[in-house]
Design a protein around this nucleic acid. Structure first.
Length: 449
RNA sequence: GCCGCUAUCGUCUAGGGGACUAGGACGCCGGAUUCUCAGUCCGGAAACCGGGGUUCGAAUCCCCGUAGCGGUACCA
């Protein structure tokens, strides 16, 4: 098996494109085949080096590697010109001076279900059209959808090369797929309607067509095409939002494909082992970031501590030191994305945040008494790890005649400034005795005012 | 307009004529977690687009609608 991922470099790699890349990668890895990365840059204006780099960057982040490329489609132009010349010579294609308007009026005359047919002109500066048969049909044998047939009559003699001799997408793709020895074309459903054209080109050239599989499209929560309006829409957005590459691969794989036993959490090895293109579903799927968050949280909790800390450090762009390691250790069970880690551990690196609502809600009348007692308990005793802190604090609620929450929440607010944090014993221990006492003192002082 | 694809809980899906009182997961709602929740555990509500066929029997097969999406460029 030899597959290809062939994005056009029009900007950031979108989530739909990422899934197409993933499916190609999974198919290749599953079969022990090869993945070719080809950049569809025949539209020179949109194909900037920056845009190409964005795609490579996205694929690297997703940890999807390729075996060949990136190959520039535009650089294959000698091959395309040679193929074009062959068709022209054989009469399978012809120069045509007709404009878009001419085509339109031709259709008005012949009915909308009748494709345009032009006539050959002795004008080498005119666009080149492929001759499409009037009868019969072109059928796409799609791995996912089965046979799909298109009546030839409804197709125009479509343009395969511009007046300046450069070739168009549907021609270049067909030639490249054939000449690069691609065995399986796995791409978005938006290309299904293009496939008969490519098949027609292949047939005129005498090439065997590859197998085709058209993936259902990805939509936003409103059922419309996924775009910026929907929040995270590109791979870069996903990275910035704090998702893990492994979790993104897991979630994206599940959009349109399901493991036979309904397994939801799958490692990449497992995905490679189980993925089959023929098992992909046919209906468009909606990208649901909530589920991605959950999948991501599960992956985060399963990481080894050192790996987790390294990922957090990279995301926060901080050095990975022991303090950060300790912070990560107490936050790993709580956060669903890398982005959520910082609010949980921030109190270990900066003064408590100012959250008036939390303060008012927690610091009731007897707060000074409770905090005072906690301070005293924490000031004495040996050691200051989570166990020692728990040993010091846990007898207090009963002694003081209050529920545990009544005691722990004021401490939490005193040291972090807010009401949500990792476990209170772990948090206090991680902060250290000196800093904890200082913050409790500061809170008591503020309450005395 | 024309050509084509698709249609099961809000979402991702399982289902391949009887195993369907339609299963799982996210989300949602409720409870628990003698410390918070944005974490974890437990429970609950929640779907076969409509109409015709075929069949003893249809979520499953066929037809017709409807809706959504894609293509219809000298874009990719």
């Amino acid at each position: 098996m030899r597959v290809r991922f062939a994005p056009s470099p029009t900007g950031a790699l979108h989530i739909g494109g990422a899934r197409t890349a993933l499916y190609n990668w999974l198919a290749a890895r599953h079969e022990g085949g090869e993945l070719v990365l080809r950049i569809e840059d025949t539209d020179r204006e949109r194909s900037t080096p920056e845009n190409v780099e964005q795609i490579l960057d996205a694929l690297r982040w997703l940890e999807l590697d390729w075996d060949e490329g990136p190959v520039s489609q535009a650089e294959g132009s000698p091959r395309h010109e040679e193929a074009l010349a062959r068709l022209l010579e054989a009469g399978a294609a012809y120069h045509d001076t007709a404009t878009a308007k001419d085509v339109e009026s031709w259709k008005a005359q012949h009915g909308a279900d009748r494709g345009y047919r032009g006539s050959a002109a002795e004008d080498p500066g005119a666009a080149v059209r492929l001759r499409v048969p009037d009868d019969g049909e072109t059928v796409v044998h799609d791995t996912i959808r089965g046979p799909v047939s298109f009546p030839n009559r409804s197709h125009d003699d479509f343009v395969i090369a511009r007046g300046d001799g450069t070739v168009l997408y549907n021609f270049a793709v067909a030639v490249d797929d054939a000449e690069m020895g691609i065995t399986d074309v796995v791409r978005g459903d938006d290309h299904l309607s293009n496939t008969p054209k490519q098949l027609l080109v292949l047939e005129a050239l005498g090439h065997e067509p590859p197998r085709y599989a058209h993936l259902p499209l990805l939509h936003g929560p409103d059922g419309r095409k996924l775009s910026k309006r929907h929040g995270a829409a590109s791979v870069q957005d996903l990275r910035d939002a704090g998702y893990l590459p492994a979790a993104v691969r897991n979630y994206l794989a599940l959009l349109g494909w399901g493991a036979d036993d309904d397994a939801t959490l799958l490692s990449t090895d497992e995905l490679v082992r189980r993925f089959r293109v023929e098992d992909v579903g046919r209906a468009a799927a909606i990208f649901d970031e909530k589920k991605l968050r959950w999948v991501n949280g599960r992956h985060m909790r399963e990481m080894a501590p050192e790996e987790y800390a390294a990922a957090v450090a990279r995301h926060l762009d901080r050095d990975l030191d022991d303090r950060l390691r300790a912070a990560c250790a107490i936050a790993q069970e709580k956060a669903q994305t890398l982005e959520e880690v910082w609010p949980l551990i921030r109190f270990l690196f900066e003064p408590p945040v100012s959250d008036e609502k939390a303060w008012r809600k927690t610091m009731k009348d007897d707060a000074p008494r409770l905090l005072g007692a906690a301070r005293q308990a924490l000031a004495d005793g040996e050691g200051f790890d989570a166990e020692a802190v728990e040993a010091a604090l846990s007898p207090l609620p009963e002694t003081l005649g209050v529920g545990p929450g009544k005691l722990y929440q004021p401490i939490r607010v005193a040291i972090t400034g807010t009401t949500v944090s990792p476990g209170i014993f772990e948090s206090v221990a991680a902060l250290g005795r000196e800093e904890t006492l200082e913050r409790i003192d500061a809170a008591i002082a503020r309450l005395a005012v």
